[in-house]
Design a protein around this nucleic acid. Structure first.
Length: 489
RNA sequence: GGUCGGAUGGCCGAGAGGCUAGGCACGGGUCUGCAAAACCCUCUACACCGGUUCGAAUCCGGUUCCGACCUCCA
């Protein structure tokens, strides 16, 4: 290894060396989706970001346990008394079982991960399957005096916690202000709480509520932060290496997780907190409330007014990887198409490397290039830099192929290995083969053959006619020394 | 209102006190029957105003604009 991996820790607002608690084992908890809708563009960034981390740690030889939860219960539409569970609300609307909805969208989510070539999680726990663990934590919190029940619900006592701990340290909030209540809301429905900053651990459910469980405080359902605390502790221990999620979860979700877990287990849950930034559209965050989301499946079909055309999963992935995970990334057709062309060029280089002829000496330094690639990854997973380096290799490789530069046999081998390592194993890109039926390919080959004959007879009118017709049908012919190849849109 | 970020060339995006990424587009060229594709070359930017410095896009102060979080969110 060239140097050690450094990652930005939200907790310290700093880039710090990554040191596992119990190497070679690494425990990672990532906040997964709430499965009440089709995955949209925003859902794509988290899995991709943490997949790079996952893949790189595996490459470095760590034994990684990646836990990514599926939230199928618990999110409230608001924090007031008449709060409704999102999944239940949708179930009523569609007259389906809540679990059916959750399963349906879980399947969509998994399909998306597969298309994006994201490695599967080690454990994918569901909130609804861990009600017992959540209840246990809540009871412990009450026993320790950090939580109180009120009218069938249970709330975390932020003021009590703040006497001995720093509520707000993760998100950089000022606890006095949180306790005083924000100026922006503070409406009714807060009367059950001792303080507006308190958050629900358990919510009482009324009879119309579909998803509900028995508890010592009556029928209800868990608050939306407790599942992550309960499940991460169960599968990774009360303290683990990395907790990841979107920046929008920083407050209140992660802050509350820190508070609950710390109060319950006496230890800060994660040593390192990683947050990826949002995807924006015309400079604005994509959000349910703004109604500007684009579904992931729309990208693959192009079926959305905001999209000029269809974009492949790898195209989308590469587009995301070209920006650093901590910065916002603005979506546009132009940028997506730029990424598409770049990706093709990058991917084609793999074949070019195979065709390289060795020289006695190398005119460029492959070792230095490899070192710089690792440095980019080690620097808080700087994929844009890594990609820039990969394009340097593309250029050198093409120039070597054109005999402008030269590489020794040993360096060619090295280039092959590391290029594949970075592009395919660590970035997790893959070549998308469009599967065509054999018949179609045979027809095409026949046409290409006819055109070749026409060309040989200098019958360019016929040759061009074939080419133009095929272009209209979405088949692009490429003539080269070796013959004619085709691509199908 | 509070807190925290950001403003980089036609577009997307790195970087971060002197060596001034990368992709795409544009322009020029090689190749080609012609194209397309591919390949090569080219294109010198850091919101504004002050200040620190031999030197600032990078540091400091101020200004303007934008965004995020504070409410479900990836």
């Amino acid at each position: 290894m060239v140097q050690e991996l450094q990652l930005y820790n939200t907790l310290h607002r700093n880039i710090e060396p990554f040191k596992p608690i119990a190497a070679p084992f690494v425990g990672i908890y990532v906040c997964g989706p709430t499965v009440y809708g089709e995955p949209h563009l925003g859902h794509v960034r988290g899995p991709i970001t943490f997949d790079i981390l996952h893949r790189y740690l595996l490459h470095l030889g760590y034994k990684v346990r990646l836990v990514r939860n599926i939230t199928d219960v618990g999110h409230l539409t608001n924090d007031s008394d008449d709060g409704d569970d999102k999944i239940a609300a949708k179930a009523k609307l569609e007259a389906l079982e809540p679990m059916e909805i959750a399963q349906m969208y879980t399947n969509s989510y998994h399909a998306m991960l597969m298309q994006l070539n994201v490695l599967p999680a080690s454990i994918e726990p569901r909130a609804s399957g861990h009600i017992v663990e959540q209840l246990e934590m809540i009871e412990t919190l009450i026993q320790k005096g950090f939580a109180y029940s009120s009218n069938g619900s249970v709330y975390f006592d932020v003021e009590k916690y703040s006497e001995t701990h720093d509520y707000g340290k993760l998100s950089g909030r000022i606890k006095e202000e949180l306790l005083a209540g924000s100026s922006r809301r503070n409406l009714e429905g807060q009367n059950e709480k001792r303080n507006t900053a308190d958050f629900a651990l358990w919510k009482k459910a009324d009879k119309s509520h579909i998803m509900q469980w028995n508890s010592p405080w009556g029928k209800g359902f868990p608050g939306w932060h407790i599942e992550c605390s309960a499940m991460s502790a169960k599968y990774l221990g009360t303290q683990f290496d990395i907790h990841g999620g979107g920046l929008d979860l920083l407050f209140p979700h992660h802050e509350s997780e820190v508070a609950q877990s710390t109060a319950c287990f006496g230890t800060n849950p994660a040593k390192l907190w990683m947050h990826h930034n949002m995807v924006t559209i015309n400079g604005q965050k994509m959000a349910k409330s703004l109604n500007n989301g684009i579904l992931v499946k729309d990208f693959f079909t192009g079926n959305n007014p905001l999209l000029d055309k269809a974009y492949s999963p790898m195209n989308l992935k590469f587009f995301i990887l070209q920006a650093h995970y901590r910065g916002t990334l603005d979506f546009s057709n132009e940028a997506l198409q730029a990424a598409e062309k770049g990706l093709n060029r990058l991917l084609e280089t793999r074949e070019t490397i195979e065709k390289l002829e060795p020289s006695a000496i190398s005119s460029w330094d492959v070792d230095k290039w490899v070192k710089e690639c690792f440095e980019a990854l080690n620097d808080d997973l700087n994929t844009p830099i890594l990609i820039a380096k990969l394009f340097e290799a593309v250029k050198q490789c093409n120039s070597t192929f054109a005999k402008i530069e030269s590489l020794s046999a040993e360096d060619i081998k090295k280039l092959q290995n590391f290029f594949s390592l970075f592009v395919f194993e660590i970035l997790g890109l893959q070549k998308e083969e469009k599967s065509q039926s054999n018949k179609e390919i045979e027809f095409l080959e026949l046409l290409i053959e006819l055109r070749r004959n026409a060309k040989e007879n200098k019958d360019f009118a016929t040759a061009d006619s074939i080419r133009n017709k095929l272009t209209e049908l979405g088949v692009t012919l490429k003539d080269s020394k070796e013959g004619t190849s085709f691509t199908i849109n």
